[in-house]
């Protein structure tokens, strides 16, 4: 696996909670925000067990941007859901900044997602009843981590200043995804997880959205794991891993 020193070389105005704790000690050696060991998950389909993940090992360092590719049905989204605590693993461990996710209760996993994870989905999954402004601030505010200056910067950098009063259904796909990314980054997460964030966007828009995401991730210093089918986009990140036959290669 490649280890990059991107975080150390980028200015860090918005260090994550973990990075703050370890900044002095690991200034030249970025610490690991995500550490997955021997992770397995089996589904039952038509009465037959389907072993989707068969002992996945993966780690992501603070500031590291990783692309996860693999053929359809290879378990990419499943892996992302397990990391986010949306689903429970059958075996193995997932540690986020040293917190073991697999042993957490439902409420504990919910708190972890709220406070330390940013999630971006292909379908955007914005809250339709709230305006763009309220959507952007939603997670940060329920996590008690709303930062007006950072919120303003996100609005500016994501180009949402003229759209703040609008509702999600009034936005284009690219605009909606920018709001979703802004919402996920508003809490200054430890790890940003994105599941096919550009899957619904045209090539130019996809590149723009991803470029913005890369910049903002670098700005926050969080880890970034993106599931994608596009090898072209995967190549723009620091590291590219592939899920095949239930294992990461």
């Amino acid at each position: 696996m490649l280890a990059t020193g991107l975080v150390a070389t980028q200015p860090r105005h918005f260090p994550s909670k973990c990075a703050t704790q370890h900044e002095g000690k690991f200034r030249q050696t970025p610490f690991i925000v995500l550490d997955i060991k021997n992770l397995s998950k089996t589904f039952t389909s038509a009465g037959e067990p389907v072993h989707v993940l068969r002992g996945v090992d993966l780690d992501i360092k603070a500031g590291e941007r990783v692309a996860l590719t693999g053929e359809s049905g290879s378990g990419k989204s499943t892996l992302l859901h397990l990391i986010a605590g949306l689903d429970a693993a059958d075996g193995g461990t997932i540690a986020l900044e040293g917190t073991e996710i697999t042993v957490l209760s439902d409420a504990g996993r919910a708190a972890l997602r709220r406070d330390r994870l940013g999630l971006v989905f292909q379908q955007y999954n914005l809250i339709p009843s709230l305006s763009v402004d309220d959507n952007l601030a939603f997670q940060a505010r329920i996590a008690g981590r709303h930062d007006a200056a950072w919120h303003a910067e996100l609005v500016e950098r994501l180009g949402l200043a003229n759209l703040l009063k609008r509702y999600p259904e009034q936005l284009s796909g690219g605009q909606q995804q920018r709001v979703a990314i802004g919402r996920a980054l508003a809490i200054k997460p430890t790890l940003l997880l994105a599941d096919e964030p550009t899957g619904n966007l045209d090539e130019d828009t996809a590149e723009n959205v991803l470029a913005l995401t890369r910049d903002l991730v670098a700005r926050t210093g969080c880890g970034f794991l993106m599931v994608t089918h596009s090898l072209h986009l995967a190549a723009t990140l620091d590291r590219h891993v592939t899920l095949h036959a239930g294992r990461v290669s």
Binding site: R113, N125, L126, I127, Q139, I142
Partner: peptide
């Protein structure tokens, strides 16, 4: 579901 995903329990 998105609300659950961003940390509000069921």
């Amino acid at each position: 579901a998105p609300l659950w995903a961003i940390g509000i329990t069921r």
